[in-house]
Amino acid sequence: MTGYVLAGALIAMAAWGSAAIFDKLALNAMRGVSPLAAVVVRMIFAVAAVCVVGVFSGVGEDIIAMRPMTFVYLALSALFAAVIGQVTYYYAANAGEVSKVVAFTAGYPLVTVAVAISLLGEPLTWLKVLGTLMTVSGLFVLTAFGSGKQVIKEP
């Protein structure tokens, strides 16, 4: 990873990891209310924040100039990750044991890696394989045995 990519990934990881603490505090404060409402509220503020950043960095013209295919890809990302994945996650968590659901779904990066290598042609290296397996194994241990209840999935 280059320095800029590593910096971006580290900031994202730190932001998501810290935000989850506030998700937990929020859910503790709203017992009896659907977590889906929490997801919507959180997304309202997220959209407001990125729109403010977007206005100040002048991305309006970029958005207008986007190709239709870009919109399609971003819509599919939103549909799969933010809607279908989120809804089925809540269904599974309600139907079964949350710890097992969280532990199994921690393997989602394996799907990304498999598709990225097979369809996007990204290179497969031993370091990447080992790093991916260690990270996913560690997440499995944390979520299955470490009481890591991932209530709201990022991003």
């Binding site: 890809y73 971003l74 599919l76 990302s77 799969f80 990750a81 933010a82 279908i84 994945g85 089925t88 779904t105 989602y108 990066p109 394996l110 799907v111 990304t112 498999a114 598709v115 990225a116 369809l119 996007l120 999935k153």
Partner: peptide, 8 residues
């Protein structure tokens, strides 16, 4: 779904 989200 989460895995495909990153690809898109």
């Amino acid at each position: 779904s989460w895995g495909l989200g990153g690809v898109f």
